[in-house]
Amino acid sequence: MAKSEGSTQTITKRSIALPGDIIQAPPDNIIDVHNCVLKEKDLNIVTVVSLLDIEEVGEGSRYKLIPLKGRYIPKEGDVVVGIVKDVTLSSWIVDINAPYDGVLNASDYLGRPFSPTTENIRKYLDIGDVIVAKIAQFDRTRNPVLTTQDKDLGKVVEGSLIEIEPSKVARVIGKRHSMISMLEEMTQCKIIVGNNGRIILKCNDTEHEYIAVLAIKKIERESHMPGLTERIRSFIIEEKIKRGLIKHEGE
């Protein structure tokens, strides 16, 4: 299943790393963005089931780890799709698919001071409403604080919501947005991907929407196999032919 893939003249070998596996390499050669490796004394211990890419570059090998499973842990600056689950006097408690609930203050949502004595907070957002928000503040001692004061953030009024494994979000977006722009182009949908594994689809018709959902589920299932973008592209074309949306390959 190892196959060379990607940009420059690097040879990539793919394998699955498991908890307890030890990587014997200088720590500088291990690229570990997602915190899969525990450095103890001179040992590098893998802590979660993850995908290990070994790249041969020049003088040594480079080890890259991507987790295959795991809950979403909020990070400052992440865009998340949340569902309002409770209302307080001047804030909303938002389920963001993480072990910690998000807090969205009314003044952050409205962009102006909010006084609960003169206005009813439920007028703006109520339980069950879906929002796209950004994590403004989070340090694990207190629940994450959300904000909607940025471009494309706020209440979602149309579209459909799907949930995937949060660790697969990077695959749905792809290298330099390659996957997501391909999906948007081929299905004519507007796709908003939250870092917490929730995706909002805004499509023109149900047939295209259904294809997009199938494609995203396929990405989630086969994310650890090389050549994903191409496989998804041919999958969408196949589905389109099946549904009679196009006649031959290549629209």
Binding site: P19, L38, V48, V49, K69, G70
Partner: peptide
């Protein structure tokens, strides 16, 4: 626990 993606030092 490992299948849930929870970090652990060893099985």
């Amino acid at each position: 626990v490992a299948d849930a993606g929870i970090p652990m030092v060893d099985l």
